[in-house]
Design a protein around this nucleic acid. Sequence first.
DNA 1: TAATAAAGTTAGATTAGTCTAACAAATATA
DNA 2: TATATTTGTTAGACTAATCTAACTTTATTA
Lengths: 222, 222
Amino acid sequence: MLSYTEENYLKALLKLSFQNEERPEAGTNEMAAYLGVKPATATDMLKKLKEKNLVTYKKYGKILLTDIGRKNGIAILRKHRLWETFLYEKLDFSWDEVHEVAEQLEHIQSAKLVDKLEEFLNFPEFDPHGDPIPKANGDMPAIAKTLLSELNAGQNCKVAAVKDTSTLFLQYLEKLKITIGTRIKVLEVIAFDGSLNIQIENEEPRSVSMKFAESLFINQLP
Amino acid sequence: MLSYTEENYLKALLKLSFQNEERPEAGTNEMAAYLGVKPATATDMLKKLKEKNLVTYKKYGKILLTDIGRKNGIAILRKHRLWETFLYEKLDFSWDEVHEVAEQLEHIQSAKLVDKLEEFLNFPEFDPHGDPIPKANGDMPAIAKTLLSELNAGQNCKVAAVKDTSTLFLQYLEKLKITIGTRIKVLEVIAFDGSLNIQIENEEPRSVSMKFAESLFINQLP
DNA sequence: TAATAAAGTTAGATTAGTCTAACAAATATA
DNA sequence: TATATTTGTTAGACTAATCTAACTTTATTA
Ligand SMILES: [Mn+2]
Ligand SMILES: [Mn+2]
Ligand SMILES: [Mn+2]
Ligand SMILES: [Mn+2]
């Protein structure tokens, strides 16, 4: 049985491993920063996780999830994203409110609960932020990797997921009437500062910053 | 902010106070037994709860919730029973499975979540065991207090709530096709051992023990 | 009422998770 | 390569929640 805290460390390591998939290891400081604890604390926990065979790591070396560690991390992520979907779909939470509560709900221990919840939600593939929801067996749809900022003038796309999940960004998206699935056409790329002129669905054209365009994952349309 | 553990103590004290309403105080050992900890542990926690103005108590004296303590205890109980209802109504849990998971869910911190959940469930008055669900303001429907064992031959009633919520009893009730709201007619009271002959809805008459009859709260019918 | 039993408290220890401050190793840089 | 910087570890302390064992107070009963 894993503690609440151990679960958070495993999920953090998993998320960090997604951040650059070619080198899925993490460092102690990186991990500590991600979790909002001091490096000394992370080192201690690492020893415990290693003892339990959830990570491989040696002193001053990089941290890597074992298969068991990864499996557990994915289970937490699955719960997190299913709960976010529940809050969003069934309880009318907005997409900037779901994360905080799901951080708590993801630790509820009950295999039956997770699977029944998934069924109740009709086996959703993606959470409200467009992130893929792992299946009970650990399978997970591929993650969209193309950013809006990578498109050229004239190209069309659909919003796949948000890279930045901060409240500020999510609320800005709402204001712009952008949500997962929204169609966007790139009208012009401004070389000077990387900003874009875009058309959101059939709205009036408007300009967005490079920072904005680098925070949205999209799927290209023909 | 209350810790997970403090919340459990407050809910325990509240439940104990329901157990005899004329004298709503509890003792240290009673409380420890209820929570499955040692008396020494309960004493320590009591000091902390007193420090936080959640209980009144002095050394070797009885424990009583303050208004704040009571308010907090009721909030936990509200969450517990709403979650039980959710699990039962929406996720097809059986009534002997809901309690364990609700014990965890009741500690999720989010005012919005509780209220939205209540709305989603259509403002239920009672949980799957027939226990009243406190409203957001702390109001609570009256608790049924009459036991099946208090009826005489010829009287009719409806099952209001279960007094015993053990898996063994709940599963036995299922087998007998008894649930909250089921109509029962007392056909005969056996003076020898307090057992009853009863008719459940329109089923064949059958006999139940005194222990059984003392575990069901009912509302009398004319 | 005096002895016994029950109820409740205290002291001291343990475990999980965290911190600060000092130190050590690895990496980058001049 | 020598030094400086970054990264990571250790030692020692703290808090919350728990325990056991010994002790004290209150209640029961002979
Ligand atoms: Mn989230
Ligand atoms: Mn999400
Ligand atoms: Mn319950
Ligand atoms: Mn209940």
